[in-house]
Design a protein around this nucleic acid. Structure first.
Length: 554
RNA sequence: GGGCCUGUGGCUUAGCCUGGAUAGAGCGCCGGGCUUCUAACCCGGAUGUCGGGGGUUCGAAUCCCCCCAGGCCCGCCA
């Protein structure tokens, strides 16, 4: 709806002014949309921008398709303010279930996220990947794309070999009640300590890696067993974070099914290929200085080879391939894209996010320096439960627990998704545990407040004609939701939705304090209740797309 | 040494790609507001050389160049 209006105005300006670009911007407090085209035309028309703007406004006002809006020149700016008919129209869509769903697409998308090495629990860095990825997945589905979400299981790396060595050689019994992934981390950390003391162990680890690549049944079983146990732990954590995958794809399958061998044979024939002891690509003509190694001198494949096979497979089965990866994968990701392009395969789109570190420095599973997602979840639920108990002592414990769980989830997901991915962050307990403004719970609270009003209101006749300034501001904010979904899909930046949801909650809270709803009467009450219904629905859709529970009471 | 990302009030951060109207917001600080629809809230105030310098432009937080600082990467690891 709003998008159509945008196009209409854009076309009208282009036709009226002859400019190639309508130069439409957000009008901010001045208007719904504004054009700065008068500045651009000043030189060629040899006229003052103010005069050009005024002349254009006179012409635009004559156009029938723009009749429902106010058009005025404020100095050199041309401002467009949508009329009440538009506002009513947009609100009618906003009260419908599934508001913001875009038209169904046929482009099949595969989205990969998280894919952490199964050598220890997910920590606060990994879940940045999960939350960005899962939010993107929800937005793509909302935007109408058929989507499959995958987790790429690195089940044959050196880290896993070290874990297996640890289980074979160290005292590695699971503690009572110890979670599988935490158990594996403990063994992995201990094994790494041994490796530091005794270099001979590295040779044993290498042997394990060769055995697994050659498909030795006993070794493969051992690798699979520990990896599967770690993934069981991951699944618990991800479920707590409301993160889901449709399929877990195992790296070793690409050895077993011959895909890796096939892609290596294709790579060998590339002009960039060099085969001496190792097989590697020289991509220096594309600006990559280092060798892109595909196969070791002992004949085993490296991660890059399996990754190429994996991406070729994804490209063959989907129309769009999207990966969410940490900034440490930027170079290897670019090399992968470059190679896929040369091979004529589908090139994956990669969403990178920068690192999360601790105040004392980088996280490291190997060194045991990390804050696990499980610890964060446990701590935040405790905090949320105390908070709910203080605010709502009359509720029974089960209800308070349930609210605390949703509030905790909201706090974590929102805290992570609200920051642009390209910003590196330092994990801060105080901020993670904050339930105030610019937090997930703040938005949930606004939603619960709207639900409460609607519940108390009972039946009412829907009325879409907004009148006061606050009503209209809120209605126009609601109308921006579908365009926000579109924008996230276009830019692959989910924090845009986080910002939108928060601004909508802000606008609603301001409205709430200035415009009585239940206390007003007749038509005024009806239209404000309709507006509250639209806000409630839009907040609900926004929260759910962010993977946050839109609880009705808190 | 080279490449990528980041630098916005005391702290955290939006805006940067697609240059325009007094740079938005939260925390913290100061002052107000619950016998009124959920105060996880609202209203008002103080706090900014948009890292520094140069350039392009009628106009630069936004584009270009140089410099400084921080993060990440540059492996027969994944």
């Amino acid at each position: 709806m709003l998008h159509d209006v945008f196009i209409t105005i854009e076309t009208a300006i282009k036709e009226t002014s002859g400019a190639a670009d309508a130069l439409l911007t957000n009008g901010g407090e001045h208007a719904d949309l504004a054009s700065t085209v008068a500045f651009a035309l000043a030189k060629q028309k040899k006229q003052a921008p103010v005069k050009i703007a005024q002349d254009l406004v006179d012409e635009l006002k004559k156009r029938p398709e723009l009749s429902g809006m106010t058009i005025e020149a404020t100095g050199p700016y041309i401002n467009f303010i949508l009329g009440n008919a538009y506002v009513s129209e947009m609100l009618k869509a906003a009260v419908q279930p599934g508001y913001g769903n875009l038209e169904k697409k046929t482009t099949r998308v595969v989205l990969e996220h998280t894919s952490a090495n199964p050598n220890g629990p997910l920590h606060v860095g990994h879940i940045r990947n999960s939350i960005i990825g899962d939010t993107l997945a929800r937005v793509f589905r909302k935007a109408g794309y058929p989507l499959e979400v995958q987790y790429y299981v690195n089940d044959m790396g050196r880290q896993i070999a070290i874990v297996v060595w640890g289980f074979d050689n160290l005292d590695s019994a699971q503690y009572p009640g110890e979670k599988e992934d935490a158990h594996i981390a403990r063994v992995y950390i201990a094994a790494n300590r041994e490796i530091e003391k005794d270099e001979g162990i590295t040779q044993q680890v290498n042997t394990l890696m060769q055995l697994v690549e050659n498909g030795d049944p006993a070794t493969v079983r051992k690798f699979r067993k520990e990896v599967a146990r770690c993934l069981d732990g991951f699944r618990v954590t991800m479920k707590d974070l409301n993160v889901a995958h449709d399929r877990f794809v195992w790296e070793s399958d690409f050895i077993r099914n011959g895909n890796t061998e096939r892609i290596i044979n294709k790579l060998k024939r590339m002009p960039q290929a060099h085969e001496d002891e190792t097989l590697y690509l020289d991509l220096s003509e594309f600006g990559f200085e280092n060798k892109y190694v595909i196969r070791r001198s002992d004949g085993t494949s490296v991660y890059a080879a399996r990754d190429l096979a994996f991406h070729a497979w994804k490209g063959a089965n989907f129309d769009r391939v999207i990966d969410v990866l940490g900034a440490d994968h930027k170079l290897i990701g670019a090399q992968l894209q470059c190679t896929m392009k040369i091979l004529g395969e589908k090139v994956p789109e990669i969403v990178h996010f920068e690192f999360v570190s601790l105040p004392e420095g980088s996280m490291s599973t190997r060194a045991g320096k990390f804050v696990s997602a499980d610890d964060l979840i446990a701590e935040i639920r405790k905090r949320a439960f105390d908070e709910v108990t203080t605010r709502r002592p009359e509720l029974d414990e089960a209800t308070r627990r349930s609210i605390a769980q949703s509030v905790g989830l909201a706090a974590i997901r929102y805290d992570i998704v609200k920051v642009s991915p390209e910003k590196s962050t330092v994990f801060d307990w105080k901020e993670a545990l904050d339930f105030e403004r610019q937090s997930g719970p703040y938005i949930q609270y606004a939603h619960a407040r709207a639900c409460s009003i609607l519940e108390k209101a009972g039946e009412f006749a829907e009325c879409y004609d907004m009148e006061t300034e606050q009503e209209i501001i809120l209605a126009k904010q609601i109308a921006k939701f579908p365009m926000t979904i579109e924008k996230v899909v276009a830019e692959l930046r989910p924090h845009i939705l986080a910002t939108y949801a928060r601004e909508l909650a802000d606008t609603f809270n301001t409205f709430y304090h200035f415009e009585p709803v239940l206390k007003s009467e007749g038509k005024v009450r009806d239209r404000r209740l309709t507006l509250v219904k639209a806000v409630q629905n839009t907040l609900k859709e926004s929260l759910e797309t962010l993977g946050i529970d839109a609880i009705r009471s808190m």
